[in-house]
Nucleic acid binder design. Structure first.
Lengths: 226, 226
DNA sequence: AAATCAGTAATTGTTGACAATATTGGGTTG
DNA sequence: CAACCCAATATTGTCAACAATTACTGATTT
């Protein structure tokens, strides 16, 4: 019997998801030392599956492990956080270019509708950085998926975005520039709709560059300490 | 006592290394179904650490797991392999740019010496694709490290390169163009030595593009079946 | 004869106990 | 008084037995 995708959730998968969301949501803050049996009692599971999940998370760079010494949530320096945006710049630029070549008309229409939703969201949620950040994430997520580049999506969605989101709660990336960010999003989608991959790539790179400069400015001003 | 880095190798680390090299060297070929206790007896370890290693490798995309059904080595389609090179293009372009900004003079001198070594290696190893591929790997490895971008190095060295090397044994990437590749390498290093990041990025992107086109041509000719 | 269903066997997932190691606290010494 | 060394403790790493699920084999039915 060919079981297409049974989706039998194993305890290790469960542990992995729990830990990942806990880290992203900030329940486990960067630098926290976490004991294995603490986690076991917290998530109601045993050490076997937990350790497997820890291995996965370590491999993805969300955790740091030292043998016999324990596990702690990774803690990025300001410089490393900035480097993350340099990587995003080139990778998401590629994603935008390939999305322009490969997204279906339907997907593009949906994306435009999403941006309308974000507009009202920004109006209503004055200064509530959380919702703005989630909208931003939604936008980038769709384009990455639209690139139809499996490995690229895996690296962005499975690695980089989690790290970025982990710090987004503290920095509120696009705070102070939500309208500007939305405008940039619209122009990127326009380029994609016109199937202009080169332009989409250029605009996406500039968009992420702006976010990076915004962060660097705040770091310099001492507004956010990492 | 501050134990800088005790480097205590755990069995799981051992299992991870063994499996990774086995996959890269082709001892475990793409698509192979591998049983857990087969691996245990093969590498002289028990299932606990093995499963942790399997988790890590799955997370890095070298293995595919289906609950209760077993583990198999990931098998890329021709299209996916090409996509890998599109990712390498932008990421290694960034690496080259940052390397031009950050490598020490000593590192650059070493890199140039390495290329001299590759030249004689190519002369001596007529058509022995293996050594050419290793030389190529060495070059890219040094530049990636020279970028001083931790996460970038982690993603390239820890993920992409292993996948590329896994297929390199079959395709011998630069076969038929070793001298041309070496010339491209030299020009990239020149740009780095002149601290011209923009040029280094451009040349690196073009270099990887050439490798991609070479592969696409071979695939079209049916020379290599994936 | 082909396809479906059930039962068996083998493999994976999970658990709890055991062994090894790093950290922490106290005591001692310079 | 500070620094260092040593031992106790708690945590991590490892192991082997148990449970659950899937895949396979063979028989039965249409």
């Amino acid at each position: 019997m060919l079981d297409t995708n049974a989706q039998t959730y194993t305890r290790a998968d469960e542990a992995f998801d729990c830990l990942q969301t806990a880290i992203v949501k900030g329940e486990l803050a960067p630098g926290d030392k976490i004991g294995e049996l603490d986690l076991c009692s917290r998530f109601e599971l045993t050490r076997g599956p937990l350790r497997e999940a820890l291995g996965r998370l370590e491999s993805r760079g969300l955790l740091v492990r030292r043998p016999h010494a324990g596990v702690k949530v990774v803690s990025l320096s300001a410089a490393e956080l900035v480097e993350l945006y340099r990587i995003r710049e080139v990778m998401e630029g590629l994603a935008a270019r390939q999305a322009a070549e490969r997204m279906t008309d339907q997907e593009i229409a949906d994306l435009q509708a999403t941006l309308d939703g974000h507009e009202t969201m920004i109006e209503e949620a004055h200064g509530q950085a959380y919702y703005q950040a989630e909208g931003d994430y939604d936008f980038h997520h769709r384009i990455t998926t639209g690139s139809r580049n499996t490995k690229l999506a895996q690296m962005l969605l499975g690695d980089l975005y989690y790290m970025v989101r982990m710090y987004r709660y503290r920095l509120s990336t696009s705070a102070g520039r939500p309208h500007r960010a939305l405008g940039e999003h619209r122009r990127i989608v326009e380029a994609i709709a016109q199937r202009d991959g080169e332009l989409a790539e250029f605009l996406m790179k500039r968009h992420i560059n702006a976010a990076r400069e915004n962060i660097e400015k705040k770091i310099k001003e001492g507004v956010l300490t990492i």
